[in-house]
Computed example of a mutant assay.
Amino acid sequence: MKWTELCIYTTNEAIEPISNIIHEAGASGVVIEDRQELDKERETPFGEIYDLNPDDYPEEGVRLKAYLPVNSFLGETVSEIKQAINNLLLYDIDIGLNKITLSEVNEEQWATAWKKYYKPVKISERVTITPTWEDYQPVSTDELIIELDPGMAFGTGTHPTTVLSIQALERYIEKGQIVMDVGCGSGVLSVASILLGADKVLAYDLDEVAVESTRLNVKVNKVAQQVVVKQNNLLEHVKEEADIIVANILAEIILRFEQDAYKLLKPGGYFITSGIIQNKKENVKEGLLNAGFEILEVNQMEDWISIIAQKPEGSR
């Protein structure tokens, strides 16, 4: 089978929304090549692995690469992607150069392209994310291993927004709790929640591709019996209460359902939000406070923000 490599030159700020656009267009995953990665001085408290080749990165800015099958709909699909990216300007998102190139690759090149970017990474005190093809052996008895295949997942699970979310889950989850994963994407946060002690996860995403990716990944990680995956628009028509709601999505989307999150959380429950860019931080904080939440933490990794809020004890 022949594939087209779609390469988009953009900015760090636009990585998350453009990745979502590409996935909605039918791509199985996204490769992120960010020149800034080469110059960062990294603290590695969890033993992260960084082995970067400068030749794999653009001279400036960010390259996003995705792979689409060559078929009669390809031209229409690319046009829709271009229009959706241009529409990000309406949300004040800097899309940078916004240059798009196409090149044809064969099946073998497509499969190999993923693997050189993806190695096991320890992202918190206990959680390590590894590709399914790596024979990774845990280095401690309490280490939790999440296996992902970027050919079917929404990224590799090591983006700062995901790392912030998992680190927050590690701090707040208690055994036997119910977690809601809103905008579940690959399902990595659902898997992490079960491994960290949650009894049940309700995973929701509007995108059919995300729903299928989550279903596959919970099976790969042997937690399918504890994760209920449904196609759903945020928390619409959801009745069950949760101890924790986690949402790693755009700030604009978080602000569409913060009141629903407040209603569905048990008193004392936590709302973990991530995927927030710096200039949207105050908007999200204001929305959470207006909904009745108390802000417990505001954390940052690189240019990304995570906010942890709590529904006060004794509230309804």
Rank of each mutant, 00 (worst) to 15 (best):
T101Q: 06
A261M: 08
V179M: 08
I166W: 02
L88N: 02
E16A: 13
S186H: 00
Q300E: 15
A84M: 06
S306V: 01
Y262T: 01
A210Y: 03
P45T: 06
I49M: 03
S103P: 06
S103L: 11
T77A: 10
V220I: 14
A14T: 05
E252W: 08
G185N: 09
K281A: 09
K222H: 11
Q225E: 15
P17K: 04
Q83P: 00
Q177H: 12
K281L: 09
F271T: 14
D142Y: 03
A251W: 02
K280V: 02
V211K: 06
I100N: 01
A242H: 10
Y9P: 00
L64F: 01
E170A: 07
Q231Y: 10
S165T: 10
V182C: 07
L88C: 00
K122C: 09
K311G: 02
W3G: 06
K99L: 10
A251V: 02
N299C: 13
V182F: 09
T158R: 06
G47F: 01
T214C: 14
K65H: 14
A309P: 00
I253K: 02
V139Q: 15
I129E: 02
K266W: 13
R35S: 12
D260P: 12
I272Q: 08
P69Y: 03
I129D: 06
Q225S: 15
T162E: 13
S190A: 14
R316N: 15
